[in-house]
Structures are given as structure tokens and as C-alpha cells.
Simulated scan of single mutants.
Amino acid sequence: MAGALAGYRVLEFASLGPGPFCGMMLADHGAEVIVAYRPGGAPDPRDPVFRSRKLVEIDIKTPEGRAQALELAATCDAVIEGYRPGVMERAGLGPDDLLAVNPRLVYGRMTGWGQFGPLAPTAGHDINYIAISGALGSFGRAGERPVAPLNLVGDYGGGGMMLAFGIVTALLHASRTGEGQVIDCAMTDGSAALMALIWGARATWGWKDERGVNMLDTGAHFYETYETSDGLHVSFGPIEPQFYKTALGLLGLADDPDFAAQMDQARWPRLKEKLAEVFRTRTRDEWTLVFEGADACFAPVLSLDEAYAHPHNVARGTFSEIEGVRQPSPAPRLSRTPAAAPQRPSAL
């Protein structure tokens, strides 16, 4: 396969969510990723998260399966596993076991709570992990309960993406030193790291530890979504003064004195009401034409199918279709080692 990771081999012990997403990221960029499934547990090949992989059946609960996994791990550069702490050790496939047969191996461990800590042995999901990291408590409108941002912040951003980053950095270290190592990737840690901007905002520009009252959390009138006359929505985010001025002009509000003090938080609720009234006077697509080509930080809020067909996304090839299944294309884009077109996983 093409890609910056061509020549690397990864053994992925089948799991849910963030583990497969990490494997997808590595496979998208050229790594040979072999997914070991328990008998009868292979995925639906239409699922993009499992694309560009080789699938094998290994029952790691049997001596034969353990031997097969050890033999395969000896030929790999990295391993991905997403079980609760202790599961792989009990199967005889923990870090010590695999590093004994392959000292250069990068052993990536994906969990919600991490390998240690009071919650480590307990069950949980994305919504729980981002709850204790402080992320979930920051998502939502003022006076309302927290809103889970799908499972993107814990499972995928703080989990799978963070593990992919950890594996690549550890592979760089192994290439220099010949030393493998273990990656303890916890979604609690990863989602906390994604909140670095907000921790910085608290320290430097007065971010309040409340939902829906700050500039980036729907508190500000100039960083918000608005409903249009057809019941659809637009995103509006002109933070910088020059973009704010342009946006107000396009909305017919350039001479409205209420909007002069952009950063006066006491005015934000009333200004949101006024903007909501203005945006309800036209359809989403009519507003899109008004703002087209302007530096006003505006975009229509699109459905998945609309996003697939948007001219900008089409021009960049942001989405692909594999055997009738629409899905996001590999990202990010590398100039010298671009990712190959993704493919469905191999036959088992």
C-alpha cells in the first residue's frame, strides 16, 4: 500500500470504537493492519472504521490461539488492544509476553479509565470518560443539562486518535533505539488533553467554569447557530473585529449601535435574540448566497448527505464511496506519501 506507514505491520486485537478507529488511521496511511477476531466475531465489511485491513480468526482463550497470536506479534511493529486491564495478561498476551518475543514492539493499550486508578477495572463508555475529564460539563447551553457531543471527544479524539499518535511516536523511538514500549492510552487523559485550550482560557482571558456563557460555548451572539425561515440552520462565528464588521454589513446591521460593543457580555443574550430574528427572515440557502465568498466566518449547517455533496468537499475529495458506502476519505493529506484510496477489509 501507499502511504507514510507503508512497511509497518500492526496486529489489532478486535475491539469496539476507538481501537478500530486507531487501526483505520494507521491503515489509511499505509500500515499493514491485521485484525484478529474471535471465531464468529468478524465485523460488517461495509463499516468504514474497518477498512483497508486484513481479517483473521484467532481464539486467544485457547493455547493454539495464544501461540498463533505470539507468532504473529513477533512479525509486527505494533499491537493495538482495547480490553479491560488484566485481560491480555490472563490470556498470556500482555506486554511482557509480547515484548519477550519482540523487544521492538510498540504495545498500544486503549481503555476508558486507563490501566490504573480507582476506576480502571470498572465498565464505562465515552459519556462517562468525558464526564470526569471535565469535557462533558463544558458542552451545553446556559441553564441546561450537559449535551454529549456524539462519542467524538472520548472514543475518537481522546481515544483512537490519541493512540494513533502515541503509536507513531513510539515507532519513531523504536526506529532510533530498537526499544519497544507500552502505551497506556486512556480516554479520560486524552479528552482532558483536548481541553487544553479551555484550561488556558481560564488562566488568561477569564473563561468561566459554566456552560453556555463563554465565547466558544454558545454564550456569544457571534459564535452560535441560528435557525432560518425554512427550519434549517446556519453557523455564525465572526470573532475577529474585521470579520464581525463584514458580517454585520451583510446582515444589514452595520449601523445598529447595539452591536458596537462586541465583547460586552452583558449584551450577548439580547444580541442573540436580534440576530435570531434577522436569520429567520431568509432560508438557509438564501443566507448562504448572501455570505458567499465573504470573510464573515459563516457556513450552512449540513446533513451528512449534504456534506458529501458540498462543492468544497467535492473539490477536495473529502468523502469517498467504496462499493456503495459513503465515508470520509483518509486524513490528513501528506504531500510526498499520500494515502491510497481505502478499500473494504479483506475476506476473513
Rank of each mutant, 00 (worst) to 15 (best):
Phe291Trp: 11
Ser138His: 10
Ala91Gly: 00
Phe21Glu: 03
Thr204Glu: 06
Gly237Tyr: 04
Trp268Asp: 04
Tyr129Gln: 06
Arg211Trp: 05
Leu250Ser: 07
Val10Cys: 06
Phe21Val: 07
Arg46Asn: 15
Arg336His: 00
Ala2Arg: 15
Leu136Pro: 02
Glu57Asp: 11
Pro311Gly: 11
Asp126Pro: 04
Thr188Trp: 01
Val79Leu: 15
Glu224Gly: 01
Asp96Cys: 00
Ile127Tyr: 00
Ala309Arg: 14
Ala67His: 01
Ala91Pro: 00
Leu105Ile: 14
Ile127Val: 15
Gly94Ala: 04
Ala4Phe: 06
Asp209Cys: 04
Ala254Arg: 04
Ala31Met: 06
Ala299Tyr: 07
His312Gly: 03
Ser52Tyr: 05
Val79Thr: 10
Pro39Glu: 03
Ala203Thr: 13
Thr288Val: 11
Pro146Gln: 05
Gly40Cys: 08
Asp184Ser: 05
Pro45His: 02
Met187Lys: 07
Ser52Gln: 07
Gly140Asn: 08
Glu306Thr: 10
Phe50Thr: 12
Val49Trp: 01
Ala135His: 09
Lys245Gly: 02
Pro95Met: 01
Glu71Gln: 15
Asp189Tyr: 02
Ala6Gly: 08
Arg141Asn: 14
Leu304Tyr: 13
Pro338Val: 05
Glu89Asp: 15
Asp97Tyr: 02
Tyr308Ala: 02
Arg282His: 09
Leu304Asp: 01
Glu323Cys: 00
Phe50His: 15
Ala294Gln: 13
Trp113Gln: 08
Arg51Glu: 04
Asp255Arg: 09
Gly324Met: 14
Ala14Glu: 10
Leu150Val: 12
Ala69Cys: 12
Tyr226Phe: 14
Val278Ile: 15
Gly137Ser: 13
Phe243Gly: 05
